[in-house]
């Protein structure tokens, strides 16, 4: 009877019970914490997989804004770290791209050199030497052939565009015509060369060739390296066009006619 009473006290006295049970429970919890991922991980993963598969759209919809927001915040807060993380990858990509481009250039140079050392090549070199043309220039010209990009006919004083012929350029020709006229006027004013005209504006392998006439000037935009044959074709086209305009003043008042005359004279320059 006394044993039963003692047991009753042990159970009903909370403090005593806690003293007895507490360490046991703490031990079990610690064990569970250690073994939880191992014991329940596969079950939870499987359940999540099924859940995500069944309601993929809902999950994406729910998570996307949070992920995007936190990514944005993360990038904003740690720009330096992001740069540091991306830099090696970008660097590698750029390096790879440059290597590829150099390989392409090297192949083109090799092909060009092979051609130069063939019988035909020797004959051509002989001709170049007779004409006084540098072989290096010929090689470079072969790699970057000149391409006529755009032609503009611009009124001398006002800078208003009279006609233009473009091959894929998406600039506003009216504004370009105005700015070119301002640049031309500025250069000619600044150096007090009213008797002389600005003839070239160069930007790396892009050239603006300007040819002035009495009341208008022609601007030809060319990409690539100019060669003599191209210059000759271009000059022929420019002069041919100017002569036609001078001969028939009606072109000045008929923008469409001038436009088609321009196309007629310049469409073969690129061939």
């Amino acid at each position: 009877m006394a044993k039963v009473q003692a047991l009753d006290r042990e159970i009903n006295d909370e403090q005593r019970l806690a003293q007895q049970v507490g360490p046991i429970l703490e031990k079990r919890i610690a064990e569970l914490q250690e073994t939880f991922p191992e014991r329940f991980g596969p079950v939870i993963t499987e359940t999540l997989k099924v859940q995500i598969k069944e309601s993929q759209d809902d999950v994406v919809e729910a998570i996307s804004p949070i992920i995007t927001k936190s990514l944005k915040a993360q990038i904003k807060d740690s720009q330096d770290e992001v740069v540091e993380a991306i830099y090696p990858i970008m660097g590698k990509l750029i390096k790879k791209y440059i290597q590829k481009e150099i390989a392409k250039l090297s192949e083109s140079v090799d092909a060009r050199m092979r051609q130069m050392f063939s019988f035909k090549g020797f004959w051509q070199r002989f001709i170049y030497r007779v004409k006084g043309v540098k072989e290096s220039e010929v090689v470079v010209q072969g790699l970057l052939p000149p391409v006529l990009e755009e032609i503009m006919v611009i009124e001398n004083d006002s800078g208003l565009l009279l006609a233009n012929y473009s091959i894929g350029s998406n600039t506003d020709p009216d504004l370009v015509a105005g700015m070119l006229t301002a640049i031309k006027a500025f250069v000619e004013d600044a150096y007090s060369k009213s008797e002389q005209d600005l003839e070239y504006i160069e930007y790396e392998t892009f050239t603006l060739y300007l040819q002035s006439f009495k009341s208008f000037y022609i601007v030809v935009a060319i990409s690539g390296v100019l060669n003599q044959a191209f210059k000759d074709r271009l000059n022929d086209a420019v002069l041919g066009f100017a002569v036609k305009i001078a001969e028939d003043q009606n072109y000045r008042s008929d923008q469409r006619a001038m436009q088609s005359l321009l196309e007629h004279h310049f469409h073969e320059v690129n061939d």
Partner: peptide, 26 residues
């Protein structure tokens, strides 16, 4: 009517504006 508007840099003296900018203006 298509306006090509030349907005010239401000100058106290009108003669400071390059004379060629005035050419052909309506």
């Amino acid at each position: 009517l298509k306006f090509l508007i030349w907005d010239v840099a401000g100058e106290r003296e009108i003669s400071e504006v390059p004379a060629s900018y005035y050419l052909g203006c309506s």
